[in-house]
Write a protein that binds this DNA or RNA. Structure first.
Lengths: 279, 279
DNA sequence: GGATGAAGGTGGCATAGACCAATGGGGCCG
DNA sequence: CGGCCCCATTGGTCTATGCCACCTTCATCC
């Protein structure tokens, strides 16, 4: 499928591929031989074997459990890709979302957040950290920074149940209108990994969003981290020279670069977050 | 910002933090002491020291150069996040895209690709691997799988210059109509890292796209890998109870989970790929 | 019979040491 | 003087080994 331009064949790569075959001959949840056993059969040292395994864990094909063993990761993961036909199978439900409050305080905005919300660094904001779960399993960590003056008396109750934007509208007369959101890939830190229940350095999606109300005034700055092995963004794009709903000048659709010189082609999209079904 | 609930202090964490201080006392491009020297001063073994360094390389704070040494990484990286105001500064141009052909052959579809393109595994496809560059710098690796029967005489020329979809339309009478695309975060493998000129295990975005023509017949299956440190997806979302352009049932917008019980809220989006300025 | 605890297996962390491979400079030879 | 080669240095890979923490199991004891 791909060519390796270097002639060297790392020992740990051979080991990795060998273990990969073991994985493919098994089903999700099945155990694979222990590290020490694999060392013997593959003829490599344990550190080397572990380095090979690390790669498989990093891409989510294998999970380690201290004191128990190593198991084929549940369901399909990032690297093996959506093996099911992704077209039209996507409507599978998103599951039940819930929240667990991690932190909820009022503090000064500080330089970075203050700049984003266009307010004084000394002005107060409500800082909320919450864990978002789907069917009880951790899915994302959200860090909310909301202008404190807009939401006096904001309760923990509102942050743990229901739609926040709806609460803002109903109880606080704050009408969110639009948002600018940036998405980039990243890897989780040790602390984040613990919260999300994934291995350290696992791939994740980082969302950064600035939400404004109908007057264009920034309301909240959100910084979220989504598990990469369970969360996926699915879009349905209408291509062709026809549709031209939003000619964002100089833009192109993610994943579809423009021609070498010209710009623009695709248009109209329907994008949504999708939870990967998995065990 | 976060608390470490575990009492253990890994040796490699102490080492990492120590090296981190060294980095912060220097400027981008400066060299730091050699591995062996650091082992001595920090009192750890080389594997341990290397494991610590690995983390710093993974988040892009340090770069290694074989035979030369280790250097403080140039400028901002993923982890530092978009420190520039993301709102409304995004129109910065995308730069000049170009392509470098890595592979261009005709082969049998195989099970996986055949299923996606709804064709026999033995039927032939054109397989193209190309490196996409922006202003000469590697940005993405694309793997195209196109039904061979649709594009007889497809030339390397067409794959290296201009917009492929336009070529398909003009020269091959293939009219792409819509596509379903999935995006997930991942990390780059060794070989991919070399091509993209980033450290191994760096964050990246994986795009998987199935493109169909006006008759609904699958045309191509694309599998692309975008650098995470230079590529970012920026969306402008219209929120509020108003707009309801596409009520994808059970869907929610990426990064904005629905309420705990109810579903649906945001709508209408404008999404684009964005190249991060700077090196 | 059910709780308890020791034993053995498993992954997690760390060590010391060896050799390989790429780099760059300094010395040797033409 | 100039080009070439050798070598010290640095990162890259791998081995062999030890100890620790965690989990499961099973025999034991109450």
């Amino acid at each position: 499928m791909d060519a390796d331009s270097s002639g060297t064949v790392l020992k740990r790569e051979r080991a990795r591929d060998a273990v990969l075959e073991l994985i493919e001959s098994r089903r999700p949840g099945d155990a694979i031989p222990s590290e020490r056993a694999l060392c013997a059969t593959l003829g490599v040292s344990r550190p080397t074997l572990r380095a090979a395994i690390d790669e498989l864990v990093a891409v989510g094909l294998l999970v380690r459990e201290h004191g128990r063993g190593m198991f084929v990761a549940p369901a399909k993961i990032t690297q093996e890709l959506v093996s099911a036909d992704l077209a039209l199978t996507l409507p599978q439900a998103a599951g039940a979302w819930s929240s667990r409050l991690l932190e909820f305080t009022t503090l000064q905005a500080g330089a970075r957040v203050g700049r984003k919300l266009r307010m004084s660094p000394a002005a107060e904001i409500v800082y909320v950290a919450r864990l978002r779960l789907v069917d009880g399993a951790p899915m994302a960590i959200e860090h909310l920074h909301i202008r404190a003056e807009l939401v006096p008396g904001l309760s923990a109750q509102e942050l743990e149940h229901g739609d926040l934007y709806e609460h803002l509208r109903e109880r606080h007369d704050v009408h969110v209108h639009e948002a600018v959101q940036a998405i980039e890939p990243t890897v989780v830190t040790r602390a984040e990994a613990r919260l999300l229940d994934v291995p350290e350095l696992s791939p994740a999606l980082l969302f950064e969003r600035l939400t404004s109300d109908t007057t264009g005034c920034p309301v909240e700055y959100v910084h979220s981290l989504y598990r990469g092995d369970r969360y996926r963004i699915v879009s349905r794009l209408a291509l062709g020279p026809a549709a031209a709903v939003e000619p964002v000048e100089g833009g192109h659709h993610p994943g579809i670069p423009p021609g070498d010189f010209a710009q623009g082609d695709p248009i109209t999209s329907s994008t949504r977050g999708d939870i990967q079904s998995g065990d």
